[in-house]
Design a protein around this nucleic acid. Structure first.
Lengths: 129, 129
DNA sequence: TTTAAATTCTATAGTCACTATAGAATCAAG
DNA sequence: CTTGATTCTATAGTGACTATAGAATTTAAA
């Protein structure tokens, strides 16, 4: 199949597919005489794997690592577990940060009401200190 | 004061200060004969305002808007309030997304334990579908 | 006064994961 | 054959920085 069909089948844009090839996530494929890329079922599966990982906010670097591990079926998968644990921790850390940020923003928001001038604005005043 | 001192006083890097000037967040300053930038107390205050906004994850675009509003002291500050509300909503949306992501990652993580091979890895298997 | 180190300058490129666009080439259908 | 669709490569842009190179200026010590 050609790239348009791969894009259609996987829900991944043509440009992103080319990008992933350039970034060495997807292998360079066979081409037609006219230089159009040709993809098979394995490519579909690989791209779906990548997309799944992206949907979990795994970085391209992390995905590369997972793909490398995947190519050693007999190896221990503790690296996978450790990567997942680290990623979960990142997400939890970010949630904590944002929760704190939300608290700060709410507090700031409470320092103003809707019938003031800019000069009297509690938000801007608090941002100035 | 020169840029190094401004950086020291505000905790903002020299490069970022120059970047903010380039992005029109900070006004172009006076220069010495040797072309070194010179900053006064107002610049310190402005940069601290910007840094405070950044610490609240406000984008440079949003900060520009706040600064523009700040320059009309007699105007109503309801735009400030609305911007803050929108920003709070963004943060809350992002928290919700990340919380959902965390749930997914935890579920995925439970599908594997530490004494398996890559071939048997529940995480990789689930990522493949 | 000279020298060397420190500070500052502008320009450019890179980070990350895409996304858009331009112009050229190929393909497919009428 | 023509025309529209598809695909190609190259390049630039997004946002908020961050790093580096080489040149110029300043500062402090000998």
């Amino acid at each position: 199949m050609k790239i348009g069909e791969l894009a259609s089948v996987t829900g991944c844009s043509i440009q992103t597919i080319r990008y992933y090839e350039k970034e060495n996530l997807l292998p360079s494929t066979q081409r037609t005489e006219g230089n159009f890329r040709l993809y098979d079922k394995a490519a579909v599966d690989l791209l779906l794997f990548i997309k799944h990982c992206r949907s979990l906010d795994l970085s391209l670097k992390e995905i590369r690592q997972l793909l490398a591990l995947k190519r050693s079926p007999g190896a221990q998968c503790d690296k996978v577990n450790r990567m997942m644990d680290a990623h979960i921790q990142q997400v939890e850390d970010r949630i904590a940060e944002l929760t704190q940020l939300r608290r700060q923003l709410k507090a700031l928001r409470r320092s103003c009401s809707s019938d003031r001038t800019v000069e009297q604005c509690g938000i801007l005043q608090n941002l100035t200190t």
